[in-house]
Amino acid sequence: MNAIEIINLTKYYGKNRGIIDVSLQVKEKSIFGFIGPNGSGKSTTIRTILNLIHPSSGEAYIFGKNCEKEYNEILKDVGYLPSEVFYYSNMKVIDLLKYSASFYKKNCDDRINYLSKIMNLDLTKKIEDLSFGNKKKVGIVQALLHSPKLLILDEPTSGLDPLIQQNFFNLLKEENKKGMTIFFSSHVLSEVQKICDEVAIIKEGRIIKIEKINNINNNNYKRIKIEVNYKIDDTFFNNIEVTNLIKEKNIYTFMYKGEINSLITKLSKIDIINIWIDEPSLEEIFMHYYDEKM
């Protein structure tokens, strides 16, 4: 069974586009990344499957239950961290977390203590006195305290310092090992790359590509930089499938997708001083997808 199944989900705000025909499946116990720039429809998708927003058309299911009709049942097993965390500001952190816990029929005290220790969160402070990053931590603990089967995170890392971010990712991996499905939206691609199994790319409300992280990382793209001491004939690159070709003095940088052997054979015909072959960052791949579609 899929943890999340979205079928042709469309949402218009009046005449403005929210999302168009979004379809995707998130397998149970996986970590799914959802990336796209600001305003591309990430939050709209998330808010629709949480029934905060009602879709214009299409359907979504979480653990096989209809998101619009059975949201009450679904939400028992879901933890959600909104992108902008706002809480009743004149409350103490611990009171908010206890209020949050009171909606689930289990004792969450131990979890609250455990999670706040990992996230280095002071429970006795008032929420209005907290910085943006610390409010985010409250949100994270709040989303995790009832050990949900599905965790939905909307841009979780903004505002967190690198150390806490690391703790947070470790925590996610640990929870994932115990069986938690994680759906993770972000525009910081390197963090998606670090942790996700599968990734969907959304742009202007439409899903452009859904791919396994392994496929992206291992098989497809290489970033290649060669240094020469003369000017390479422009026609040379016409025979090779390169993209994003940048020329800086005598250094040529480009992205290559395809058989490495054939590339090496072709490169061997020119005189090269130096060569670097790198894994491209997801960001570069991502920009590449964008270029292709534009």
């Binding site: 009450n72 049942e73 679904i74 939400l75 959600y80 909104p82 706002f86 809480y87 689930y104 709040q142």
Partner: peptide, 14 residues
């Protein structure tokens, strides 16, 4: 206004 709804409406309560 304060987007507190995000908190309350994502709890298992109708």
């Amino acid at each position: 206004k304060e987007k507190v709804s995000d908190f309350l409406l994502t709890k298992p309560v109708e």
